[in-house]
Design a protein around this nucleic acid. Structure first.
Lengths: 196, 196
DNA sequence: ACCTGAACACCGTTCAAGT
DNA sequence: ACCTGAACACCGTTCAAGT
């Protein structure tokens, strides 16, 4: 048996990660030093480095653990075969995003970090794959209703899922730079703008 | 008369800024040190600090000078009263973006920096205002053709311009994280996705 | 006035020593 | 095994001295 349980280690990692998230939301990724996280967590430098190999790995852990948008309900609808049009899926995704998880400002900072940190980008791609899976499940019944063959439905689902992610990214980046915006209003405006 | 001309100072600032952009495209915002810019420009630390008060001001200068997307043609069409539908304006904006200016990866990094640096955010808002102005000019004839009064046309133009910026941001963020995508295909997919 | 480069303060990371 | 905190290397910024 290990001296400390796996649960203890996990709890310790989360304790550090949550202290870090508090610092990040307050000061931003760039301005948060290990010393800040040490002060916020009440632990020592060495304690943090005995649970994360470096600051980058801590960032990766946070992205993997807190950047996921839970879309269980949508996924459930999709699995049950309920037909939800893409606009409804986007609405649900933005709604979940605005009520839970990290702030748009912090998400955009992590995107920026990922441009430079290959490992963080890989973690983000993995997270995005989970999101893409949930979206695909939600979109598939709708795609089936609109296409003749299953192959066509799958291809339409794939393209639609990437586009939904891009539209959500646009919403997040726009909110981060220019201030909050009502999700429904954004979707309506985008739909009407693109129909001409 | 000043010892050195205004032109000399401007040229020196651009010399430093362009050396910095080369470093930034190569190593990213975070990883580029003043020492890198010193090596790339062939100047000394002090020389750089005699033209920019600090690294943040240099970043601001770069954003103000190289992040602007030139939309002169669109603006000209708008001023001439040519009716271009919003989709055409978006297409033109993404086309200009993909052929000139900074890479999507670098743009996203600057967004991230702006979340933490108030001055950089202000500079970015000013840059965005210029872009918004060009977009508004391009969109106004179309909005006039679709509304009864001038007041309505102006309001529709305002909303449409913000949405066009959000859609462009989505394209940029998506391309930065998931790789390049054909602008026309993105617009078609977004339009079709949002029509349901 | 512009420029040089050594010096300083600060931050991420390491590591010998403690429990 | 986990933790402590002093020590080290590196980076942004300053400043006395040069042209």
């Amino acid at each position: 048996m290990p001296r400390v349980t796996k649960e203890y280690r996990e709890a310790r990692r989360d304790e550090i990660a949550l202290a870090a998230v508090r610092c990040l939301e307050r000061k931003g990724v760039r301005e948060t030093s290990i010393a800040d996280i040490v002060a916020e967590s009440g632990l020592s430098t060495g304690a943090i480095y005995s649970h994360f190999t470096n600051k980058a790995e801590l960032a990766r852990y946070i992205v993997g653990r807190y950047l996921i948008i839970r879309l269980d309900e949508l996924e459930a609808d999709g699995l049950a075969g309920v037909v939800v049009p893409p606009r409804g899926t986007l609405r649900a995704m933005l709604g979940v995003f605005t009520t839970t998880g990290l702030s748009p400002a912090l998400v955009v900072q992590f995107w920026g970090e990922a441009m430079v940190d290959v490992e963080l980008k890989a973690e983000m791609t993995r997270t995005a794959a989970k999101l893409g899976h949930a979206l695909s499940t939600a979109v598939l019944p709708w795609a089936r209703a609109r296409t003749a063959s299953e192959a066509e439905a799958v291809e339409l689902t794939r393209l639609t899922a990437r586009t939904l992610v891009a539209l959500a990214q646009g919403y997040i980046a726009n909110a981060a730079v220019f201030g909050p915006r009502d999700p429904t209003e954004y979707i309506e405006s985008a739909a009407s703008t693109l129909s001409y």
